[in-house]
Design a protein around this nucleic acid. Structure first.
Length: 604
RNA sequence: GGGGCUGUAGCUCAGCCGGAUAGAGCGACGGUUUCCUAAACCGUAGGUCGUGGGUUCGAGUCCCGCCAGCCCCGCCA
């Protein structure tokens, strides 16, 4: 309904300008043009839209707001285009103008969507939208560290990043999904040094150890690094060798990366997530240029032996400006350097760059300061094009039910693999209990399929349905609870519709002239038509929970409809229209869940 | 010491960038099944939106102070 809203907006604005030409001219001159303040109605009884624009005019015009609203409504009534869209506007409360769309218009919108695989969501580049071909976007997400296992922290980045990428792709933006894996830096110096001493075979033969062993070695290496100065020195030297291209170090590094990569891929396959790996090492050849570039633009300062850029407006513990270090005293580069090189490369023109115009980083909010600093340096160095957007999309911690950082009973971080396994196991146990209670019998393949889909959907949805800015409490019981704002509730709505289709509802042939009479039908129609606005919002705000809320509300409205209005047993006049609503609801839920990376089921 | 995020019903959370009587789920209490999967639906109870000021016709939302929690703060990423 975005297009209708845009039309109404212009009509309202024109009506305001006709009703109050002097005020309009004044407002224009003051740089604050009139605004009808058109918004979706806050309650169903107010209609479809409300315009609040009369209220702020009360003071400058010296008139009662209701009187102003009446004048606007009078002008609207004179607009034949408006009368085609809306019924007679109502003035309510202090001076709100409530608008209700004509039922024929709503029915026509539904009908248009029945034949549209995109369900009314315009695709950039093909649409009448803004004519553009979409903005080249990079979504940087997931980004686990080599030689470490993926844990719950990566879960959020992976799921949120994937969903945002899906939404942007669906809108028609060319999206590059980058996995900025931690495959460079001090940790490799540590690990390789340690392995050379205790398990050299790992560095020479592929598959000598599995990832679990590697993680154990990593832990030992870290322990030595923290307590042993000689080991620290050797490790740092090892990093320099690696970054300098020493063949033995490179080979060891390559083996470690391959090992981890295979392990990560099994998780991505399981979650149906597509990523292009481009680790920190990729930017190694560009690091030097970051330092020289910053020097050339006069931003570089040498302080206590380190090359850094001091930030504006950010002070450290002693009240002095805070530096971003781009080259350490020992000559090594660090993650700020890598991130700066990445920014240049990503905005840079092909072939030596990605040509992106919007770069999105999905990482935990603990890195907010880091990115703010790096972004500032990039901006001051002139590395962000005028039409380029650089956005950190932060998210909160995953906490246990005790409100503390999620840990296993033994106090270790929870491995992502174990977490997914447990979700599927629990979902399977729930399913089997239900089958038994209902006296149903299903084959093993069905049980596996449903348990896997529901379990993974529950994990993803629990994460995505929360506003990402806040920490969230991880609870298997809540996410798999089959009522409320959960994946199973949404999946069940799809299953109910599939049931209708199985029992003889021919939904594909059901799009004759639509006719609705029941309030439950109208409620569903109105909910269905919100999809395009919701997607546009997620595209802009990068908040997948908005899409989740919408799908949950749609499911609620559908379940009410399903409960109170018969479909298959409806009389011949109502049945085709109701089948059409069912079909569009199923299509909308499937599309929406698909954008969240969640698969649906026909039966469960 | 500086910075960021958060504080809304017993619990978990929404609240769309200032708008009408602050919403949902869970939990609690009470109801609904000759009918398309009851994994559903309907109803009741429950909130001085951390706190004190300010701006505004209008504030959970914007500004300032304070309190509490979490996170970050020079050579780890």
């Amino acid at each position: 309904m975005l297009r209708i809203a845009q039309t109404l907006h212009s009509q309202l604005l024109a009506a305001m300008e006709r009703a109050f030409p002097e005020a309009a001219a004044q407002a224009e001159a003051a740089g604050k043009p009139l605004d009808p303040q058109l918004a979706a109605a806050s309650k169903p009884e107010f209609g479809d839209f409300q315009a609040n624009g009369a209220l702020p005019l009360a003071k400058p015009l010296g008139q009662a707001p209701r009187q102003i609203a009446a004048a606007i409504v009078e002008e609207l009534a004179a607009d034949p285009g408006f009368a085609e869209l809306c019924e007679a506007p109502q003035i309510a409360g202090p001076g709100f103008i409530n608008l209700t769309l004509r039922p024929e218009l709503l029915a026509a919108e539904v009908e248009a969507r029945l034949g549209d695989p995109r369900l009314g969501v315009p695709r950039l580049g093909e649409g009448d939208d803004d004519g553009g071909a979409g903005t080249p976007v990079i979504v940087d997400f997931s980004s686990p560290n080599i030689a470490k296992e993926m844990h719950v922290g990566h879960l959020r980045s992976t799921i949120i990043g994937d969903s945002l990428a899906r939404v942007l792709e669906f809108r028609g933006h060319p999206v590059l999904r980058l996995n900025h894996v931690g495959d460079w830096g001090t940790q490799f110096g540590m690990l390789i040094t340690h392995l050379k001493q205790v398990a050299p075979q790992v560095l020479e033969t592929a598959d000598a150890v599995d990832l679990g062993d590697l993680v154990a070695f990593y832990r030992q290496a870290k322990q030595r690094f923290d307590g042993d100065e000689a080991f620290q020195t050797t490790s740092r030297e090892e990093v320099v060798k690696l970054q300098g291209g020493d063949p033995i170090s490179r080979k060891a590094w390559q083996l470690l990366c391959d090992q981890s990569r295979r392990e990560f891929q099994t998780i991505y396959d399981r979650l149906d997530i597509r990523l292009t790996e481009r680790g920190e090492s990729f930017y190694n050849p560009y690091l030097e240029a970051v330092v020289t570039g910053l020097d050339a633009s006069g931003l570089l300062v040498v302080d206590e032996g380190a090359r850094c850029v001091f930030l504006e407006g950010v002070s450290g513990k002693d009240g002095n400006p805070l530096p971003v270090i781009v080259q350490k005293t020992d000559g090594g580069f660090n993650y700020a350097t890598t991130d700066l090189a990445a920014i240049r490369y990503r905005f840079g023109a092909a072939p030596g760059g990605d040509g992106a115009r919007r770069v999105i980083y999905v990482t935990d909010s603990g890195q907010a300061n880091h990115f703010a600093g790096v972004f500032q340096v990039a901006r001051r160095a002139g590395w962000i094009p005028a039409d380029g957007r650089l956005e950190h999309v932060p998210f909160g911690l995953v906490q246990g039910e005790d409100g503390k950082k999620l840990k296993t009973r033994s106090g270790d971080t929870v491995r992502l693999k174990d977490l997914l396994d447990e979700a599927v196991e629990r979902s399977k146990a729930d399913l089997c209990r239900r089958l038994q209670e209902e006296g149903r019998s299903e084959d093993e393949a069905f049980i596996e399929q449903v348990a896997t889909t529901v379990g993974l959907a529950a994990v993803k949805y629990a994460d995505l349905s929360q506003n990402r800015n806040t920490n969230y409490q991880f609870s298997f019981d809540r996410m798999l609870a089959l009522q409320g704002n959960t994946a199973p509730y949404l999946l069940y709505a799809v299953v109910r519709i599939a049931g209708i289709a199985r029992k003889g509802g021919d939904m594909r042939a059901a799009a004759a002239a639509l006719h609705f009479s029941e309030p439950q039908e109208w409620a569903l129609v109105r909910e269905l038509l919100k999809l395009d606005a919701v997607i546009a919002e997620v595209e802009e705000e990068l908040l997948p929970n908005r899409l989740c809320s919408y799908l949950f509300e749609l499911s609620q409205v559908f379940n009410r409809f399903y409960d109170q209005v018969p479909v298959l047993k409806a009389d011949a006049a109502a049945r085709p229209s109701r089948l059409a609503l069912c079909r569009l609801t199923a299509d909308t839920l499937k599309l929406g869940l698909g954008l969240l990376g969640i698969a649906t089921l026909e039966r469960m």
